[in-house]
Design a protein around this nucleic acid. Structure first.
Lengths: 250, 250
DNA sequence: CGAAGTGTTGAAGGGTTTCAAGCATAGTGG
DNA sequence: CCACTATGCTTGAAACCCTTCAACACTTCG
């Protein structure tokens, strides 16, 4: 058992409320842990993987391509996220997964996980919780893409990422974080052109809301950025019981 | 047991692969079936419902509001859809639900469903399938809102709705369907202003792709509309095994 | 009949894209 | 060590998609 892996199964089990037996059952489905470099396509769009991929370390993303080449990045994946939860119940994935920086990824056998879910009902419920949590994030991004301006979307993304990276530790949201994603990729996340991302970033910098240069981001004014974006930290909490306490926003 | 309800539990169980015992266990959680009129708010945003709502008849939608009043409709709900699957694992809903036309809705006790999931692991897996299916739809809409034009989005929505209403029966996709949603609401679904929805609709009509007037929609050219929207019917299939055969598109 | 809701149209304006070019940095091979 | 290349960031100008505002027609309904 890989040590890094155990860490994340522990974290997973506290998030969705599993005991040690159940957590160990999931861990036993892990067939391998691989390391991959930056900008590598892990799972091509439309493939039929026989295992689920759990991101242990690094940054990755899910993307969808239109036949004419337009691309949208639907989710940024951080350490602890499943890359392809859908593979549990869907054979053919509608999205692809690729890395941003170097990553470490655990592979969990799909059929083994099915067996675990049959024997441990709580495990299936835990995965249900994860799917529902993804659902809420996607719903919030639908709102952002449909009804918020470019500036608000950028601000929202920064708040979300900082919260996901630091929120559960109750760290200072104005700490510096690594940020291995360029302006072209930001555009694909936010539904904007690279040029416009650049201009909005300059505006956010000029307003002293953020500091962003070469792979590092710092939010200078968390309250200001969060209220500009209408970011409510509670939107990332899975459950009433064992969710991280949200950062103060308004 | 309400007859209409049984119909939908049957359909649900074929979609996600449940046997009669499991299906009956879910049905036993139903505490009531209510009828509501058009334009009624069933579940306010941020509420903590003690039951899940299954839409038996009619059209409804999930919406999210920003504090300044901007609204986005994240999902259109048709007969057979759960209005608030999230309530299974989340106490406080981040969205609200309201009706478009008159609806009939079954209420299923949240705690009773939890009990059923404990005793029947397959039921939890069935709900997981439903959550993942919602996930795929939301992901596709993220692509649409982020990277497709107004005309493509409108075309996509029409294809999706017709497919969801007729696709599983292998009906003619160019049949007429009821369409109880006005241009302002369309705008809230698509992230567009009412005025622009109006103009794009005129364009689609002029191109002889659709016919739309007062509560009725007919797609005149399914292939043309689907290819304009990059609509791939396969995107709505939950599973490789027991999914409806997709309509031909390209 | 007046009121309210929905669809339609025109004109002006703004947010965003596209195209094009220039600059900086880092890595590569000669 | 230095061209050479690739990649990412920045800037300007024009064009475009879409929004906003305002007004009007039509239908439904009390």
């Amino acid at each position: 058992m890989h040590a890094l892996m155990q860490t994340f199964f522990d974290r997973l089990s506290t998030k969705v409320g599993l005991d040690e037996t159940e957590s160990a059952a999931i861990a036993s489905c892990c067939s391998e842990v691989i390391s991959v470099g930056a900008d590598i396509e892990i799972i091509p769009q439309g493939s039929e993987p026989d295992r689920l991929h759990l991101l242990l370390e690094g940054w990755a993303y899910r993307y969808v391509l239109l036949p004419d080449g337009r691309r949208h990045i639907s989710t940024l994946l951080l350490a602890g996220d499943f890359c392809d939860l859908d593979a549990l119940r869907v054979k053919r994935l509608k999205f692809g997964v690729a890395t941003l920086g170097a990553c470490r990824i655990a592979g969990l056998s799909r059929t083994a996980l099915h067996g675990v879910m049959e024997r441990h009902p709580r495990v299936a419920q835990a995965f249900l919780s994860l799917a529902i949590a993804e659902n809420e994030v996607l719903t919030r991004w639908n709102l952002s893409l449909g009804r918020q301006t470019a500036k608000e979307r950028l601000a929202f993304l920064f708040c979300e990422l900082v919260f996901r990276l630091l929120g559960s530790d109750h760290s200072d949201p104005e700490s510096k974080i690594v940020f291995p994603i360029n302006q072209s990729e930001l555009g694909d996340v936010l539904g904007l052109s690279t040029v416009h991302v650049n201009r909005v970033l300059q505006d956010l910098r000029a307003r002293k809301l953020i500091e962003l240069c070469s792979d590092e981001l710092r939010i200078l004014d968390w309250k200001g950025l969060a209220s500009l974006a209408y970011f409510a930290a509670s939107y990332l909490s899975v459950d009433g019981e064992n969710s991280p306490r949200p950062m103060a926003v308004f």
